[in-house]
């Protein structure tokens, strides 16, 4: 019974929060509602007994939305309404509804077609975290490693974009060019 109460409570809260996120024209409301919705989603993981995923949901999304706040702070005056440029209202609503229905159908069709069943039996005596580790390093090893490589690429490109003179490579430059560059740098320091 408590499970049902918790489920309906949190589904209502989650949907309400994301509704606010989409409809409001106040950047601060939208961001806060997004953060709250993300954290309410973790409740579903806890209800289903997937404690690890629930905690990871909180850790990851609280950090991610925090970065969004930083951007919001830089781009908007967050205490005022943002003036949105609205095109054809009906077209946007129609397309958005269609896309949402399509996503639901795509995800749920296989579930209805072949009755949903667990692929892997529970391992006796293994906790939540160990189970995820076992699946991640056996069946899903390749996607997992690919995601890791992608994140590494993203990190390196981020460093290159943000750093100064990262487009120069000392190994590709001749000695003379390096000496010239050093002298230029020294001049700047002296000035």
């Amino acid at each position: 019974m408590f499970e049902a109460i918790a489920f309906y409570l949190f589904s209502f809260l989650t949907i309400a929060m994301f509704y606010i996120t989409v409809t409001t024209s106040q950047a601060l409301y939208a961001l806060s509602a997004l953060a709250a919705g993300m954290i309410f989603i973790s409740a579903f993981f806890f209800i289903l007994g997937a404690d690890f995923l629930g905690a990871v949901q909180i850790v990851v999304y609280s950090g991610a939305v925090m970065a969004l706040y930083a951007f919001g702070m830089m781009f908007f005056d967050t205490t005022r309404d943002v003036k949105e440029k609205k095109g054809n209202k009906y077209l946007i609503t129609g397309l958005a509804t269609l896309a949402a229905i399509l996503v639901v159908v795509i995800v749920s069709a296989p579930l209805i077609g072949e009755n949903i069943s667990a692929y892997y039996p529970m391992t006796e005596g293994a906790g939540n975290t160990q189970e995820i580790g076992m699946v991640l390093f056996t069946k899903y090893l390749v996607p997992f490693e690919l995601a890791a490589v992608m994140l590494l690429v993203a990190m390196i490109s981020g460093i290159v974009l943000a750093g100064k003179k990262m487009d120069l490579s000392l190994t590709l430059m001749s000695d003379r060019e390096i000496i010239e560059m050093r002298e230029e740098k020294n001049k700047k320091v002296l000035l």
């Binding site: 404690d51 905690a55 990871v56 909180i58 850790v59 609280s62 925090m66």
Partner: peptide, 21 residues
């Protein structure tokens, strides 16, 4: 819960939303 430390650090981290908001 069997992921105690992760939960504690995650929820404490959310606490910084107070000053931010």
């Amino acid at each position: 819960i069997n992921i105690g430390i992760l939960y504690i650090l995650g929820v404490m981290g959310v606490g910084l939303y107070g000053p931010l908001l």
